[in-house]
Design a protein around this nucleic acid. Structure first.
Lengths: 338, 338
DNA sequence: TTGAAAGCGCTACCAT
DNA sequence: ATGGTAGCGCTTTCAA
């Protein structure tokens, strides 16, 4: 196998200097159209691709971005953040960047758990997906590593978020239209802003609709937002006196909703006749649930794309122009559980 | 913020040449213990971390490995390959490598879908997880990029696989012990070696046990190994004449088994009384299924670790010494569906 | 519009 | 056991 072609090979083949080849490859500077084409042709013919290492060394930019998320989020049954990652990777590819994925434990000890690429400065910026220990974000800030949070918030760090408010309002309109009088909200993981935002917006919308949610039916569990929590906290809701048991429950995410469905089934309750259930996120399992779950669709890939885009713009323009917040729209998907 | 320290800073601070610092940082060559410690101390004090780019450029190794899997495998509801990736990432971290994750579509067109890091030569080797288009593997071979397949096989490419045979034998022993006389096997995705290996081993074991599986009960669907296929192909199995409807079904993976549970529920069959169901993989959802699924546990992280380990060894020793095959053990987990 | 040349920070070879 | 030094392949002034 011939050795990998270098910029000099291309320069030689197209009878120009390596400087010119560099300009062409980066689409910079003023280059005569004829020259550009000749160089490009030679590069294509030789199968030339610039060396990342050399480029990184000379330009002081690595061309890598980090993507960090909490380990338990990555392992969780429904691939929410996996899809956020896919979106980020897609956008990175478009921009010629590589994504280094790393998970961090919770709690996070900066000195011990820091992703290698942080300590080694081998990324130009970092996307943080979902809730993580604030220590990580502060470490990023202290080291002056550009970062964007996707579906999370911390101090005034730049973020890209889901339109939780819009989704919650749509759900409220839906349950009101269905005529439900006793409606509950079930949330969890109070350290994450999304469940709380959904709760507050939902409570507000129901109040606006003249059906304020009584205190006892507005529950936020301390556990993680997973199916087990949904089953447990949901059970408490369903075991209330039948007279004030809710006829509809809006869960802060699909995992909780699936757990609630488990609890309903255990009690022989029919869904949606005896109990309407609505989730949030629209994960894969929502449509496969029994019955298929009414939920708020979140475009996860787009969230990742947006986060990476915002980060990349900030890194390229090298100023502090990372916008404070970007909102990814949501959409109610009515299936059979409500 | 002070500029990032370089090797020269460390050399200066510890009164040695940069060559010596390099040796120390790489744990190579003969260096006096006193010198080593002095250098190390200076490096720590300055917060020095070698530049990846410079190192890669000089050493002609990038320190990156690629991790490729099919896009639909990555998005799928149960995070099987996600966990394989976690294992690989863990092992990579131990070895000071970065992992670049990329998905490829299926079918795969080499010229069009090749992960960037392949064409840009920015990885030292690649782990391929799960079934992918053979064209990808041939491209790897043609470009002489070291690679290891995890849970897949193609020609004589080095691979790390699951002990499908051992798992299938354990399942056979289990259903025989439970006294089942009419047992079926349900597989899918015939292009992947694992379902087929599970089928063949299971058939062999049942034959050995004097309960050969009749042809009609040994089904391999052409569809993907997912829940929808399980429901569809499972329905066909359950709609057979009651006289020869199976009393137990071993599914090639958990997704199929969950689909079969859906089909059984639709028909009002009780599990395990009317129908015993056994899966394979032990994904998150298996324990949460209704009823909890008996299945064969696969240590997914270990699969990833092993694949990365094998790859790294091969890359480091730079010879063709990548072993042909490594086997990751499995274990039967009996829950309530059988 | 193009070219020459000076690094970027490191590894590895050859001296000493 | 340690140091000097020549690149690795590229970007980026600065000149022409």
């Amino acid at each position: 196998m011939a050795a990998r072609p270098t910029i000099s090979d291309v320069a030689e083949a197209s009878h120009v200097s390596i400087s010119t080849v560099s300009l062409v490859m980066n689409g910079k500077g003023p280059v005569a159209e004829a020259t550009r084409q000749r160089v490009q042709a030679a590069a294509d013919r030789l199968g030339y691709a610039p060396s990342r290492s050399a480029r990184g060394l000379a330009a002081r930019r690595t061309g890598n971005v980090g993507f960090v998320l909490r380990e338990d989020h990555f392992r969780q049954s429904e691939p929410f953040y996996t899809r956020v990652f896919l979106g980020a990777e897609f956008e990175a590819r478009r921009r010629g960047l590589y994504v280094l994925l790393s998970t961090v434990p919770d709690p996070y000890v900066p000195g011990e758990h820091a992703p290698r690429f942080l300590t080694e400065h081998s990324v130009d910026g970092v996307v943080v997906a979902g809730g993580v220990d604030g220590a990580l974000i502060e470490q990023l800030r202290d080291r002056a590593i550009p970062h964007v949070l996707a579906d999370f918030a911390w101090d005034d760090a730049p973020q890209v978020s889901i339109d939780n408010r819009g989704g919650a309002f749509a759900v409220a309109a839906h349950v009101v239209e269905r005529g439900h009088q006793r409606v509950a909200f079930l949330g969890a993981d109070p350290t994450h802003p999304s469940p709380n935002a959904r709760r507050d917006a939902f409570a507000e919308a129901m109040r606006d609709a003249g059906r304020p949610i009584p205190d006892g039916l507005l529950v936020t569990d301390d556990g993680p937002s997973d199916r087990a929590t949904g089953a447990r906290a949901g059970s408490a809701l369903l075991d209330r006196d039948p007279a004030d048991r809710p006829t509809a429950v809006f869960c802060a995410n699909d995992a909780l909703a699936l757990g609630l469905l488990d609890a309903a089934r255990d009690r022989g309750l029919r869904v949606p006749e005896d109990l309407a259930v609505v989730g949030f996120d629209d994960v894969e399992g929502a449509a496969l649930a029994f019955p298929p779950l009414t939920t708020v669709h979140v475009h996860k890939e787009r969230l990742g794309e947006a986060a990476l885009g915002v980060l990349a713009e900030g890194v390229e323009t090298a100023d502090a122009s990372i916008p404070d917040a970007t909102l990814i729209p949501t959409q109610l998907v009515v299936r059979e559980s409500s």
